[in-house]
């Protein structure tokens, strides 16, 4: 794993919100190609803010972030290039309600990459097949269950052929019986070698799929370890407290 090239390299990232809140306090994280990193932590610990800096949905004031060799700067072209290579799956799905499932998937490839619609739609149908909802292609997001919507959102990210997928609490807004189907898709992606950074509270997923589990608290990384170590033998007092609360 150490020999693989770095896909994400964050060094000393500091972020203050406009109201002065110090959200990220010098965060370092490196993610290699094909690695699955799960970020856990109590709410307000900065984990969502942190992964949202990776595709410039949040800015930061100090430190550096390099995504697949491109430094995140204020240069808009860099940001657009990084966003094309970085897919993001949101807690609230954020599907476009005025477009059908198929149109949701094909919008960005057609508009951004200027690809032919017919070709993109063929690829999109393949992706829908892969996440198990090809038969819903003509429906609108509002007609799908939460689990189906989140799978569409994953397929929509994949349609841009990203090298990195960021997940911001992808199962937190789902009814319990729908969590499984989404995690299933994420497991398959990890097995295919996708580089993934996942903010989640799903311990089962973290245990089975993650290569590394990172615990954040108060805008800092408290502990980063392989899941077996992290869950059975956490090194830090803060980790032990957190695990005691969620296990």
């Amino acid at each position: 794993m150490a020999a693989s090239p770095l896909m994400i390299e964050a060094r000393g990232v500091q972020k203050w919100y406009p109201n002065g809140f110090h959200a990220l306090r010098g965060v370092d994280l490196s993610v290699s190609r094909g690695e699955v990193v799960v970020i856990m932590g109590p709410s307000g610990s900065g984990k969502s803010t942190f992964i949202r800096t990776f595709n410039a949905l949040e800015d930061f004031q100090e430190g550096t972030i390099t995504i697949d060799g491109i430094a995140l700067s204020n240069d808009l072209r860099n940001i657009d290039a990084i966003r094309c290579d970085t897919g993001m799956v949101f807690q609230q799905f954020n599907l476009f309600p005025h477009l059908t499932v198929l149109e949701n998937l094909s919008l960005a490839p057609v508009v951004v990459r200027k690809r032919r619609r017919a070709e993109v739609e063929a690829q999109a149908l393949g992706l829908l097949e892969r996440v198990g909802i090809a038969e819903q292609a003509g429906k609108y997001p509002g007609q799908l269950s939460g689990g189906q919507q989140q799978r569409v959102a994953i397929a929509r990210s994949l349609c841009m052929e990203p090298r990195i997928l960021l997940f911001d609490e992808p199962t937190s807004a789902l009814d319990p019986e729908m969590v499984g189907e989404v995690l299933e898709v994420m497991r398959a992606l990890a097995a295919d070698g996708m580089t993934m950074v996942v903010v989640t509270h799903e311990i089962g997923f973290a245990r089975e799929v993650a290569h590394r589990v990172v615990l954040m608290s108060e805008g800092q990384i408290v502990e980063a370890a392989a899941p077996t170590t992290f869950f059975t033998n956490p090194q830090h007092e803060r980790s032990r407290q957190f695990l005691a609360q969620i296990l």
Binding site: D80, N94, A108
Partner: peptide, 23 residues
């Protein structure tokens, strides 16, 4: 329009005018 719509469009690589126009 929820702010997540713009975020989703932008994170798919759409520029600001494209995101406004299509989403």
């Amino acid at each position: 329009v929820p702010v997540g719509q713009l975020e989703a469009a932008r994170s798919l690589g759409l520029s600001m005018p494209q995101a406004l126009r299509h989403v």
